[in-house]
Design a protein around this nucleic acid. Structure first.
Length: 434
DNA sequence: ACTCCACAGGAAAATTGGGGTA
DNA sequence: TACCCCAATTTTCCTGTGGAGT
């Protein structure tokens, strides 16, 4: 018997479809967001008076419904006038330079089988004029949603946005408006005045949900689940409470509920109780960490491995220098080229951003000023994820450039140190691409 | 008051590899 | 094929810094 039979049958028998609890699900009703939706609609409604809507800046913490309400409102706007309005949603975490964003928009504007602009190689001004050419042909209102807009500034400096926002001046035929979404409340201050005044023509703040608001959201979503699984009221309240604790995060509350239901199905319990929610929370934390580790670039994985090993050797505080030293020997051992200490410093910051490390800069007087670093959460779990990771387990040549593997049939010792990088390059060049 | 450790983190140069053109 | 342009990534070089030691 297929081992999945038991579980899938229950899914089918109960007609349980949990997609309404997933992050990508776009609801039709947004409880406690009436004010925000109205404000957004009021701003965008300028298109019906044939004038360009003001640019809009939306802020609020994660899971306060910024992205989904914006998606909903813009979708409704387009429904009102499908011919005259074009909506683009750009996730700036994926497309994080002005270059890639302009290319993305230009390629989305492709009509018929016009050539796609390659993601690399073209000069910036050519992309810009090509985009303008394509835009001015369509004779429409265009609304560009820049989701996680703070990422652009963070990666490219304050001038990056200026180039993009200039589009609304230069596109004479197509009137272009921007909606920026960010969860960084200090974002505005990091902009210089000209960009700020352009972007912040209107702004909407999304306040965090409180526990009772989260409960309303959960109730509404659950009522949309086709099929049923009994859910204790207290379990529902618990999800809401945890979500409220986490800066009013609806996404987390919904995700917890989804996992709790899955746990309940897997364990064959008759209903979802507090116990399932608590187990869901543990599973959630671990999944987040596992995912974060798995998606790291190979070099970051090695730095993290070094941190784990360093902490294991000496459970007291460790600092940047120790991690760098151990990182170097791990590289030697595994046959990876090593990056400079400056780069490792940045990677450590990145790992902190991912929540895998916690750091605090401390001054030790005579003994220098450095960051003290801890592996976040249970370092044994992190180590397990790393050890079972294929990048660190086998080092098959799936990396690129310097990240490729050294041929283990050639003892590392037989290569003079100054030739090692060259050797890696040779092997990489000889590696047949897939 | 002055030094100086061990870095943090900014700026600029250098390297890398895709893409275009001749 | 050789060569130039470009963005992205990494290295090199650099200045700044909090406070224990002297």
């Amino acid at each position: 018997m297929n081992p999945f039979e038991k579980y899938s049958v229950e899914m089918i028998n109960n007609k349980l479809d949990l997609t309404v609890l997933e992050g990508s699900y776009l609801p039709e009703i947004f409880p406690h967001r009436e004010r925000e939706i109205d404000l957004m609609a009021k701003t965008l409604s300028s298109v019906f008076h044939n004038s360009r809507p003001s640019n809009l800046l939306i802020y609020g913490k994660t899971g306060t419904g910024k992205t989904s309400t914006t998606t909903y409102v813009t979708k409704m706007l387009k429904e009102k006038d499908p011919e005259g309005i074009e909506i683009f949603h750009v996730n700036c975490q994926v497309f994080d330079s002005p270059y890639s964003i302009l290319v993305e928009i230009a390629n989305a504007l492709t009509q018929t089988n016009e050539d796609k602009i390659p993601g690399l190689g073209w000069p910036m001004d050519r992309i810009y004029s090509e985009l303008l050419k394509r835009m001015n042909r369509s004779r429409r209102f265009m609304v560009v949603v820049l989701d996680e807009i703070d990422k652009i500034i963070k990666k490219n400096g304050p001038d990056a946005l200026y180039v993009i926002l200039k589009l609304s001046d230069d596109s004479t035929v197509t009137r272009t408006s921007f909606i920026g979404i960010t969860n960084d409340t200090g974002f505005l201050e990091s902009l210089d005045a000209r960009v700020r005044s352009r972007l912040n023509q209107e702004s909407i703040m999304f306040p965090p949900y409180n526990a009772s608001e989260l409960r309303d959201i959960l109730k509404l979503r659950i009522s949309n689940i086709s099929g049923s699984k009994p859910i204790d009221d207290s379990a529902l309240n618990l999800c809401a409470a945890i979500g409220a604790q986490e800066h009013g995060d609806a996404r987390k509350a919904l995700e917890l509920m989804r996992i709790a239901i899955e746990v309940s199905i897997r364990d064959g319990t008759t209903k979802v109780t507090d116990k399932e929610v608590y187990r869901a929370r543990d599973k959630f934390e671990m999944d987040v960490m596992r995912e974060a580790v798995a998606t790291l670039p190979p070099q970051s994985k090695m730095v993290l491995l070094s941190a784990v090993v360093t902490q294991e050797m000496d459970s007291s505080m460790m600092f940047t220098g120790e991690i760098f030293e151990n990182y170097k020997s791990i590289c030697r051992e595994l046959g990876f080229a090593q990056l400079s200490s400056r780069r490792i410093s940045d990677i450590l910051t990145e790992l902190e951003d991912f929540g895998l490390l916690t750091t605090s800069t401390k001054s030790q007087g005579r003994y220098g000023r450095t960051r003290f670093i801890r592996v976040a959460g249970n370092y044994f779990d992190v180590k397990r994820y790393l050890v079972e990771d294929k990048d660190l387990e086998k080092f098959r040549g799936t990396g690129i450039g310097k990240q490729a593997r050294i041929d283990t049939t050639v003892p590392l010792d037989s290569i003079p140190p100054e030739k090692i990088d060259e050797k890696i390059r040779d092997i990489w060049d000889a590696t047949p691409s897939e």
